[in-house]
Design a protein around this nucleic acid. Sequence first.
DNA 1: GCCAACACATTGCGTCTGCAACTATTCCGA
DNA 2: TCGGAATAGTTGCAGACGCAATGTGTTGGC
Lengths: 173, 173
Amino acid sequence: MGAWRALLAASTRLLSRLDEELSRAHDLALADYEVLAQLSEAPGEARRMADLAEAVMLSRSGLTRRIDGLVAAGLVVRQSCPSDGRGTLAVLTSAGRRALAQAAGTHVRGVREHFVDCLSPDQLASVADALGLVAERLARGRPTDCRAGRAHAPGQPAQPGGLEVEAAVVLER
Amino acid sequence: MGAWRALLAASTRLLSRLDEELSRAHDLALADYEVLAQLSEAPGEARRMADLAEAVMLSRSGLTRRIDGLVAAGLVVRQSCPSDGRGTLAVLTSAGRRALAQAAGTHVRGVREHFVDCLSPDQLASVADALGLVAERLARGRPTDCRAGRAHAPGQPAQPGGLEVEAAVVLER
DNA sequence: GCCAACACATTGCGTCTGCAACTATTCCGA
DNA sequence: TCGGAATAGTTGCAGACGCAATGTGTTGGC
């Protein structure tokens, strides 16, 4: 349970810090950066909207609006998909490539400073392995309708540690 | 850099999954749960707004509105702070305690299922250590005005791996 | 070939969040 | 003791996001 709290705290704070640094230095949101980075790694620097949404972990509507912004900024263009008339491709422009190249320095430096440099190489590898596993399992596991929610016996009135840790103890095998 | 992506993916997916399960089973947002859990662990089941905001990683205005919701739901009451007329205490009600007790089962089970059970005890401990360190460093490090952003030399036109990884290589010592 | 089921992307709407501005209260130096 | 600076919490406003509904295009059974 402590590990979960550490994960929550580290990711939340890291996210807001990196976003702040990137926004301040290059007027580019971290989410925009992620989109540009995904495009730059794709063959032809182009990806289908749905693929891209999955890759950057946004809903389709969320990606639509984010691409709107990048198109307005001239960093991306939309292009209808040749092989499927329903599809739309998001394609990196040369301005987008330049913007990413500039921002990448700040971003990579931030990740190194606030994350990588705090850890030993062993720790880093272990974290990458472990969280990669967790992420993959969650990506596969489809939204089960999992509507559980059994209540548990009353227990002590309150106070001795908080109800969450109490519940954790109860569930402890 | 892979570790950072794994962290991002794992935290994002874990967050949305746990929130969905909790909302579905108990009609309670994960953020609300975090607030209730913090209160239940506090002496007197009460905390100052600013403290609580820091603990649950929300802005003060964000917490104000979230407490508004919890007060409307009868799970929390506001109480003016006896020792400081400016302050406000958020205090758990008995209904809040009950709601937390019910939700805790679902939440703890979800954390175990989607996170803890994917990992060996060693991995879990290592992740907790490492991310605890990262989170603590970020919590201390005040918002440095860190307005860096040096551009780097052009390099190859594009394509060979994406611009982000290219930048990572450039910064590699 | 044709129509129904399906898939892709977008838009309307509601919710959540943070920043900046504001009010109320406390603290501290003259 | 008094007045300005700092702090606590709330509110106006704008931006980001997801869900559900919509329009458009595709595919498979007949």
